[in-house]
């Protein structure tokens, strides 16, 4: 594990180990907010930002606080608290200084708090024993991968807006099917590198 180049982890977490398409994490906001490219892109940016920084924060807290104290088992609750507080802080900052972005995300920003991709990345980082650099690359890559997936999905959904979809499959139904097809397509990358 230790010999993996951070750059490899970075690209792997975008393509071969995409949080949505190979781990199926962070699905709720993925399905709910993927109807428009513009909005999904801003949500993707927010997730990338939160992912990178919470991974870094959680790494530091885990290795410099929990491990020395022998309290590794507390990681779930500690990670969740840190993520929640961080999102809250970001919301205040965006609300104040980036009104345009706040408009685009509106009430959806708090969704990131309960986005399991964010917690998932922090936990994978511990399970896979990543170093600091590897963790940052992993966090950033996973965020970009998540953005790539949701923006692609939004693009497809915009294209099929007027398509004759069977009534029962409209909305979330067809989105899940498309997610499956996209996941199949992304399997094509999996021969390149495996990080888990």
């Amino acid at each position: 594990m230790m010999e993996l180049n951070p750059l490899v982890i970075f690209f792997a977490s975008i393509f071969t180990n995409n949080m949505i398409l190979s781990n199926f994490l962070g699905m709720c906001s993925f399905i709910a907010i993927s109807s428009e490219i513009k909005t999904s892109l801003s949500l993707g940016q927010a997730v990338t930002f939160v992912l990178t920084f919470t991974t870094l924060l959680n790494y530091l807290v885990y290795h410099y606080l929990l491990v020395p104290l022998g309290l590794e088992y507390l990681r779930y609750i500690v990670f969740i608290i840190i993520i929640a507080a961080f999102v809250q802080l970001i919301e205040m900052i965006i609300d104040r200084y980036f009104p345009a972005l706040y408009h685009a995300l509106g009430i959806f920003l708090p969704l990131i708090t309960v986005n399991c991709a964010v917690l998932g990345v922090s936990l994978f980082m511990i399970i896979r024993d990543y170093t600091l650099l590897q963790s940052i690359a992993f966090g950033l890559g996973s965020g970009l991968g998540w953005t790539l997936a949701i923006v692609t999905m939004a693009g497809i959904r915009q294209k099929i807006k007027n398509a004759p979809i069977p009534k029962g499959l409209e909305g979330a139904g067809i989105t899940l099917i498309i997610t499956g097809l996209m996941a199949l397509a992304f399997i094509g990358f999996s021969g390149i590198v495996v990080i888990q």
Binding site: V61, L65, L66, L69, G70, L71, L74, I77, V78, I81, I82, A85, Q88, L89, M92, I93, D95, R96
Partner: peptide, 25 residues
């Protein structure tokens, strides 16, 4: 230790957020 750690982290974050609330918000 568990209690202290969790309350410590929560306390620091709460402090940070209330400062942010007073300044940013």
């Amino acid at each position: 230790m568990t209690t202290l750690t969790i309350s410590g982290i929560t306390g620091i974050l709460a402090l940070l957020l209330s400062v942010a609330n007073r300044t940013i918000a």
